[in-house]
Design a protein around this nucleic acid. Sequence first.
RNA 1: GGCGCCAUCGUCUAGUCAGGCCAAGGAUACCUGGUUCUCAGCCAGGAGACCCGGGUUCAAAUCCCGGUGGCGCUGCCA
Length: 464
Amino acid sequence: MGNEVRVRFAPSPTGYLHVGGARTALYNWLFARNRGGKFLLRIENTDVKRSSKEMEEYIKEAMLWLGLNWDEDIVYQLERLEIYRKYALELVEKGLAYYCYTPPEELQKEGGGVECHEVNPEDYSEKPLAIKFRVPDEGTTEFDDIIRGHIRFKNEDLGDFVIVRSDGIPTYNFAVVVDDHYMGITHVIRGEDHISNTPKQILIYRAFGWKVPEFAHLPMILGPDKKRLSKRHGATSVLEYRDIGILPEALFNFLALLGWSPGDNREIVSKEEMIRLFDLKRVGKRAAVFDLDKLFWINSEYIRMKSDEEIYELALPFMEKAGLVKSDEDREKFKKVVPLLKERVKLLKDFVDLSEYFFKDVEKYDEKGVKKHFKEGVEERLSLLVEKLKAIETFDEKSIEKAVRSLADELGISAAKLIHPTRLAVTGRTFGPGLFELMAVIGKDECIKRIERAIDWIKAQRRD
RNA sequence: GGCGCCAUCGUCUAGUCAGGCCAAGGAUACCUGGUUCUCAGCCAGGAGACCCGGGUUCAAAUCCCGGUGGCGCUGCCA
């Protein structure tokens, strides 16, 4: 246990788990698994007004969905208030921290700028006092960041800072140190936005005489406009990606490679490989833009790697939610549809759009397709095809193809001239899986019905 | 403003620590051609980057300095 690696992810339950936080958690997780250490979860709920149990549950759900399991009991900051208080008092006794008073009116002001000077607690015994940490006027505080190398701050630039608020709740910088020490954290892996907090935290470690952990500050994740990723860039919550049909393995792979690379040219890397190869020293320094296109591409790769059965199970809920699959019969049909569409989808939810005509009547025909394929004389050709189809006994891919091609031969036209109008008649669309396999799934009677309906529709159009 | 971090194709990146193998490699996205009944895919090809300026060196994407730009922090938020 002495040199066991222990890392943590410490979200505050004030919002959903967004992709930036997820990547931080993921790197902590990979690092712990790589080193055979422990990955811990701490809920930083000291911002009582904005924290909620609901958000905590969402965060845990998102982590588990991604496969980021934590090893020990969750630590809740709010349950540890007396402990922070005790340690803060210890610093006051040592003269390393002091009480200060600010009139309540002043505290209402948003955005800080509140002045507060050292006071004698006995003179203010009835009034709420905050505790401030005393930063040395001189010298520097330095550390070696695993990712960024040596970083130095002048103490005079830091300035005294509040460690316990007048309501008795500790501030982030103080609670983090007390908790990380208590949890035995050996490596603090977090976002680059915490670099400037690090010297303050180191000063606190030293004030207690505690061992300072290693630090690794990860680059930020940006939106396409190079601004910090936020809601206005669209989906940022991990669960939103689940809900459009991103596979957890795909998001995991994508996020892991956003800032880190195993060094070879691979883009698709299994979780096991990542655990084996992960190295904080190979994490990049510069902020990365979150590229949806690449995520979608990775997702389509993962979809293709899975078996038809697995994809059926994963996509079924999307189909049921959309109301396309309602019965056992529908489910049987969808099982046959999956292999036809698996290579054509980027997201699981794409199955809904692309498979609609398997489950519903064709209500309209693609406009451009009509101009291109429903030309003079198609209705006769389609009628002849219907006759051929009616004669088929076993309505499978082969026999359908034979029927279509032989008719084309007899008419002296290219098969394409028959195939495209038929696809439009049967699916309403100009693109999709191979016509013969698609028709086999839809079934003989339904195909004939749809073609006849199309013939009627075309004739009706001619009259207008 | 102050302090800090960062800077390779549109995007993700390899290469930077240990300067030459880099007239900069891969992936994605984009364009073209091939394959197929269409689409997707697949195959082949194309266009596309070392932020700028100095310096060190026989040699710099790589080291040093300056500038510029982006981001972060600057709260009794985390």
